[in-house]
Design a binder for these strands. Sequence first.
DNA 1: GTCTATACGAAGATAGAC
DNA 2: GTCTATCTTCGTATAGAC
Lengths: 196, 196
Amino acid sequence: MSPRRSDARQRMLDSATTLIRQRGASATSLDDILAHSRAPRGSIYYYFPGGRTQLIEEAVERAGASIEQLLADADDLTPVEVFDGFVSAWRDGIVASSFLSGCPVLAVAIESNEDTPQLTAAAARAFASWRGALSALLRRHGVPPAEARRLSSLVVAAVEGAVAISRAERTLQPLDDIAQTIRPLLRDAVTRRSKP
Amino acid sequence: MSPRRSDARQRMLDSATTLIRQRGASATSLDDILAHSRAPRGSIYYYFPGGRTQLIEEAVERAGASIEQLLADADDLTPVEVFDGFVSAWRDGIVASSFLSGCPVLAVAIESNEDTPQLTAAAARAFASWRGALSALLRRHGVPPAEARRLSSLVVAAVEGAVAISRAERTLQPLDDIAQTIRPLLRDAVTRRSKP
DNA sequence: GTCTATACGAAGATAGAC
DNA sequence: GTCTATCTTCGTATAGAC
C-alpha cells in the first residue's frame, strides 16, 4: 500500500493540531511537528509555501471545521443531545490525553499576535461558526433568535473555558459542573416554545 | 523622589502580565519584558534567580490574587453585584486595550508544558481560588453547596471563555451574551432560598 | 518530493567587572 | 544592583543537489 501523495501533508497538520492542543502554538516549532509526524524535512515548504504560519492556520481551520460538523450534522437531534455530544467530545479528549490536550482554536486565539492576524482571524471564524451552528439548531427547535444567540454564546464560551480549567486543575469537575447547569437551560428553552 | 528598592521588580512583573495578556507566555521573552518595563538587564537574575519561569509564575500568582480580591472583598454585595463587577473588570480590560488583552492566567494554563508544571499549577490555583470565593459568597447568601459549586464553575468558565472569544472576534457580544444569561441564574438561586 | 547544508537571528542563562 | 560580554541552543527560512 503506497502512501498517497499528500499523506505527509495530512500527518503534519494532524501533528501540529496535537502539539498545539498540548502546549499552544508559539511553543510548537517546525522541528517539533516534523519529529512528531515523521514527515520529511523537505516537505515543509513544499506543501506549505507560506511556512509555519500557513501550516498553523490550516490546522486551526481543520479543527474548527471538524467541530462545526459535529454541531451541524445533527438535523435529527435535539439541542440537548447535540450539546451532550459536544461536551462528550471534549471530555473524551481530555481523558484520553490524561489532561494534556485542550482546544487548539482557543490556544491560537489566546496567543494572538499583531504579526499574524490571519491566525486570530481563523480562530475567530471557527468560534463564530460553532455559535452559528448551535444558534441555527436552537431556532429550528423554536427558540427565538435573540435567546438562541445568547445560549449559543454561553455554550461555546463555557465549554471552552471549562475545558481549559479542567485541564489545568486536572479534574473534570468544572466541565461536568457547567454541563449540568447548562443542560436544563437548553431543555427549558426548547420546551417553552410549545407551552407559552 | 528616589525609586524604591524593588521598583524595577514590580515593573517587570507588571510588564510580564501585560505582555502575557496580549500574546501569551511562550511568546513573551525576557528581552520583551525588559524593553517594556525599562528595567535594567542586570535585574533579571538578581530579582528572579529562578529566571524566566519564576518571573512568569509570580506574574500569574499576582494576577490570580488580584482577581480573587475582587471576588472576595465584597461581603456587603450580592452575588449578582459581584458577578457584574467581575464581568465589568474583564470588559473594561478588553475595551481599554482595543481587544488586545485577555486573561494572563488562561494564557499560561493553555500553554501548559510538561517542562514547567509550576506554571500550570499556579494557574490552577488561581482558577480554584476564584471558584472558591464565588462559591463561598453564594453559600453565604443561602445557596446550597452543590449548586453554589456548579454556578461558580459556570461563572468562571463562561467568563474566561467569553473574554477569549470576544477578543478574537473583536466584539463584546459573546461576553455580554453570557452575562445576560447567567445573571438571572444567580438571582434565582439566591431568591429561592427565601421562598422554597 | 525530499535531502543536506547553511545563513541568520533570537532566546535563556552565566561570568566577571564595576 | 547593574553592565557588558559571551556561551550555547534553538528556530525559521533558503539554496542547491539529487
